[in-house]
Each structure stands twice: as C-alpha cells, then as structure tokens.
Lab assay of single mutants.
Amino acid sequence: MSGIALSRLAQERKAWRKDHPFGFVAVPTKNPDGTMNLMNWECAIPGKKGTPWEGGLFKLRMLFKDDYPSSPPKCKFEPPLFHPNVYPSGTVCLSILEEDKDWRPAITIKQILLGIQELLNEPNIQDPAQAEAYTIYCQNRVEYEKRVRAQAKKFAPS
C-alpha cells in the first residue's frame, strides 16, 4: 500500500471527524483483525431537504486505489439507486470521479460526498449510466419523482 495514499486518507479521516456536513457519514471499514482499512470507507449521503430525495439516507462505498490521490476513489451505492447517473452496479457516474475528466488530487472526501448529493437531485442527462431511470427522467418527470420519493422512504434511517 502506498504511504502517500494512507497518509492522505488519515488526514481526510481526521478532517472529517473534526468537521463534516450534518447527516453525512464517512467511516473507514475494519479489517478482520480489527485494524482500520483506510482504503475502503462506508459512507452515507442524506437526501437534500426540499427535494424528492429528502428523508432518505443512501449508503455508498468509497474504494481507494494505491495511487490515490492521483486517481479518484470508486464510489458505489449499496444497494444501487434508481438514478440516471448511477450504473446498474451502483457505481456513480460523475465527472469529478473520473481521472480523465474533472478529478483533481486536491478534491476531498467531503467535496465528493457533497457533489454526489447535488447530483442526486440534478442528474447530468449528457452522461446517462442507467437506461430506465434516464428514460423516465426525460419522458415523465412526475413518475420519476414518485419513484425517487418511494426510494427515499425505503432508505429512511430507522
């Protein structure tokens, strides 16, 4: 494992614990031996107030490669969400998460999670990743928002 990646992720964890947006979660997972795995984080993004996503808490896994922060983490909703920019596998399609697009090593975990929260309610229809959600979003916004509200209710924190 890269010392650069681990040191950056340790800084990220410290900064997150000191200050993070209300309702968001970002925690490194534990290895079988109980030690912390900084390369694999369990996160959760709350649906934004005043949107059909409100009330939901959407679980996301963030996986970092050894060359982080040169390369972005892979962000994957578990379980996958109904959304035009979420692949059926759950992987998020967002330009700041793509090395050859808008990724920059200075982007923080907090910025990534806030960017994904923004994307939930403002899909990028130029870059669809899920045919069904994309089609319904474009053709029947009322039905799309109904499905999103049902999903938010399903993923409401207990």
Results as ranks from 00 to 15, higher is better:
L63I: 12
K14Q: 04
I96L: 11
Q151H: 05
K48P: 15
N124P: 04
Q139Y: 14
W16G: 02
P80H: 12
S95D: 01
G3D: 14
A10R: 03
K154T: 11
R17A: 01
V25G: 06
P73A: 12
C75F: 15
A5G: 14
K110T: 05
N121H: 09
I4L: 08
D102K: 07
E98L: 10
P80E: 11
E98N: 15
K59E: 11
G55T: 05
L120K: 03
E54I: 08
E12A: 01
A10P: 04
E143F: 07
V86F: 13
K14L: 09
K154H: 09
F77N: 00
N124A: 06
P105E: 10
W103N: 01
P28Y: 00
D102T: 06
N40Q: 06
K30Y: 07
A152E: 03
I112K: 08
D66Q: 11
S95E: 05
W16L: 05
N140Y: 08
Y134K: 04
M39N: 11
E118M: 10
L120R: 03
A152H: 02
D33N: 07
S70Q: 07
Q117G: 12
A156P: 10
S71K: 12
S158K: 08
W41F: 06
F22H: 08
N121Q: 13
I96Y: 05
T108A: 15
A131I: 04
I136K: 08
W53I: 03
K153S: 10
Q139D: 13
F58Y: 13
K76Y: 15
H83R: 00
V86T: 00
P84L: 15
A106H: 01
F58H: 02
G34W: 07
D100K: 12
R147Y: 08
H83I: 03
W103V: 00
A131L: 11
S95G: 02
K146F: 08
R147Q: 12
D127K: 00
S70A: 13
H20Y: 03
S7M: 14
K74L: 15
W16C: 07
R13C: 01
T91R: 09
C75N: 06
K48N: 10
P46V: 09
E99G: 14
P79I: 15
K14Y: 06
N140W: 01
L120E: 02
L114W: 13
K30T: 07
I96N: 02
F155V: 12
E42V: 13
Q130T: 09
C138P: 00
K146N: 11
T29Y: 15
P128F: 01
V86A: 08
N85H: 01
K101C: 14
P128G: 13
D100N: 14
M36R: 10
T91A: 15
L120T: 07
I45S: 06
W16P: 01
Y68N: 01
C43D: 07
I4M: 13
G3L: 10
E12Q: 09
Y144Q: 03
E78H: 12
D66Y: 08
P46F: 06
L57G: 06
N140C: 04
P88R: 15
S7G: 08
G34C: 08
F64V: 12
W103R: 00
I125V: 11
P123E: 00
L60D: 03
V86S: 10
I116L: 15
D19S: 04
A156F: 11
S2Q: 15
L9M: 05
N31G: 07
K18M: 07
L120N: 00
A150S: 12
L57S: 09
K30A: 09
A44F: 02
A150V: 11
D127M: 01
K74P: 08
I125A: 08
A129V: 00
E145D: 13
A152V: 04
R149V: 09
F155M: 05
D100G: 13
S7I: 07
Q126I: 12
I109E: 02
C43Y: 05
I116F: 07
W41S: 03
Q117A: 14
P128R: 11
Y137K: 06
K74D: 15
D66A: 11
M39R: 08
E78V: 15
G34I: 06
V25F: 11
V86Y: 05
N31Q: 10
E12M: 06
L94P: 00
L81Y: 02
E78T: 10
P46M: 05
A44V: 08
L57E: 12
E78M: 14
K110W: 04
P73F: 03
R141M: 15
